[in-house]
Design a protein around this nucleic acid. Structure first.
Lengths: 155, 155
DNA sequence: TCTGAAAGGGTTGATGG
DNA sequence: CCATCAACCCTTTCAGA
């Protein structure tokens, strides 16, 4: 991955905040004309620095009012099991995040659900589809203080 | 918040995946001409259904190779303390998520860091700035299986 | 609410500094 | 690596259904 200069980083900063800003306006913000600005953006898209552009939607507007984190501990830990878990969780749209963690549990899953019925269904799915799920522990979110994917660009 | 019909939901589905798609192309995808399509998008922006558009940036490209979750348990639980925690964590750019959870701990914090030195710094900040932080427990992510904010629109 | 058309503005690529 | 410019495409608005 190539180096990012100050202009690249400024572009990333702006596009992380306003992903639909026009190249013309973006160019003004960073003090460049439109063509080289657009070229830098394209280069970063090609290089995988910018991985995509996404509208963010209010979970409440879609009725997903329940946010839960689920810790899952597997009893067996073969490579096969990890692969299967990956595949299963990737295709559950209510699962927004899944990470393999070190420490006292194996997976940390974040899911947005419409209510307790969907929650019960999720847990059932996980424990049934996973070949050797042993323990699971859930945390219900009472208040969301912050949720973003925006990274500081530093400089 | 108003009802979302099938067309609205289709628009949300597409814009969550491709947030910079032109209104012309979006209109083709959903089988409408450009004007009413743009109008629907504007309406959903006004109503807070669409909360923004954001470029997503590769954490590796910015050197943020360490992803950690930190559980924080407060010893005192006055309203004052919660307010202070909120304010502090909101202004730490390395903190991507923070949630108040029920269960055996109080806050769940997700942070992307450049390494152990920044990790030490974060923990120091948290435990120093928080008036009454008692326990903290960290989980280092070994593998990221999924990370998205995209919600299923159902229908 | 939609379609279609027209005017204004944005994007893109060639050219030259 | 940047600015300029022209051709093309997109956005926005408005009339009409």
């Amino acid at each position: 991955m190539p180096e990012l200069d100050r202009i690249d980083r400024k572009i990333l900063d702006v596009l992380q905040r306003q992903g639909r800003m026009s190249m013309t306006e973006l160019a003004e913000h960073i003090g460049l004309s439109a063509s080289p600005c657009a070229e830098r953006v394209k280069r970063m898209e090609r290089d995988g620095v910018i991985t995509g552009y996404h509208a963010h939607v209010s979970p409440e507007a879609l009725g997903r009012t329940l946010l839960v984190f689920v810790e899952i501990k597997l009893s067996a830990k073969s490579g096969d099991v990890f692969d299967k878990v990956r595949k299963e969780l990737l295709h559950m749209p209510e699962v927004l995040e899944c990470h393999l963690v070190s420490g006292s549990f194996d997976y940390l899953v974040k899911a947005r659900l419409s209510g307790m019925s969907e929650y019960r269904h999720l847990l059932g799915d996980i424990l049934k589809k996973l070949p050797v799920a042993a323990e699971s522990h859930s945390y219900v979110v009472m208040e969301e203080i912050k949720e973003t994917l925006m990274l500081a660009v530093d400089r």
